[in-house]
């Protein structure tokens, strides 16, 4: 009985099978950062801001409407609220109770995380500028990174009323932002193919525009 050939066949089938499995399954290929959830220099909670407080994404990431980048807000955007809100509400209530008990005015409570913000802004505990201190930028860790030859344009997607969650996942429930989608080309293409062309859209293959363009130069130039 001969078993060379079955072995060889099995080898081939295995190779092809592995290829298909890698392509189709959740096996992460190099460069795929799906699930990336890095520590940030300030523990900024999207769950609190976008979830509990129900803030609109565009309130801070306003550039997404006008630019290809959504943009990380500058610190003065944070200061818009955090000039007034210097700590969690629980801590404020507690201080009020303690102050009441001690019969004094409640003190300003500054949470350690916001302290980092004020430090970066060069502000003291009373949120007054520290003389000589310059505002320093915060070095956030980029979560959603795409290759430098891919030009993704937030503005177009926002203009078409795409929900941020569709790509970024349930950010309102994330304590720390996590890369929800794999951001692979296939993932982009799948969505483009599934999305109907804009009314009056131009340049679709075939007589009738079928779906959003999947031209190479849509993203690569």
């Amino acid at each position: 009985m001969s078993w060379t050939a079955p072995l060889a066949f099995a080898g081939c089938v295995l190779c092809i099978g592995m290829g298909v499995v890698v392509a189709e399954s959740d096996v992460r290929l190099p460069g795929n950062n799906q699930g990336y959830e890095p520590e940030q220099p300030i523990h900024f909670s999207h769950r609190v801001h976008a979830g509990e407080l129900g803030m609109d994404c565009l309130a801070c990431h306003f550039a997404a409407e006008q630019s290809r980048h959504a943009g990380i807000p500058s610190l003065d955007v944070c200061m818009g609220c955090h000039t007034h809100v210097t700590s969690g509400f629980d801590a404020v209530l507690e201080e009020r109770d303690v102050a009441k008990a001690e019969g004094r005015e409640p003190r300003r409570i500054v949470s350690p995380e916001l302290r980092k913000l004020y430090d970066a802004m060069g502000l003291d505990d009373d949120l007054e500028p520290i003389p000589g201190a310059e505002a320093k930028p915060i070095e956030w860790v980029r979560v959603h990174g795409i290759a430098d030859y891919v030009y993704f344009d937030h503005r177009v997607h926002v203009a078409r009323d795409l929900a941020c969650e569709q790509c970024h996942g349930p950010v309102q429930s994330m304590e720390r932002v996590r890369q929800e989608s794999d951001l692979s080309m296939g993932w982009c293409i799948d969505c483009h193919r599934a999305s109907p062309a804009e009314p009056g859209a131009v340049g679709m293959v075939g007589a009738e525009p079928k779906h959003v363009s999947i031209d190479c130069v849509r993203c690569h130039y």
Binding site: V20, A23, E24, L29, D182, S184, M185, G186, I189, I214
Partner: peptide
């Protein structure tokens, strides 16, 4: 022409 995560392309 192998299956790939690029569409596949």
């Amino acid at each position: 022409p192998y299956p790939n995560p690029r569409g596949p392309l």
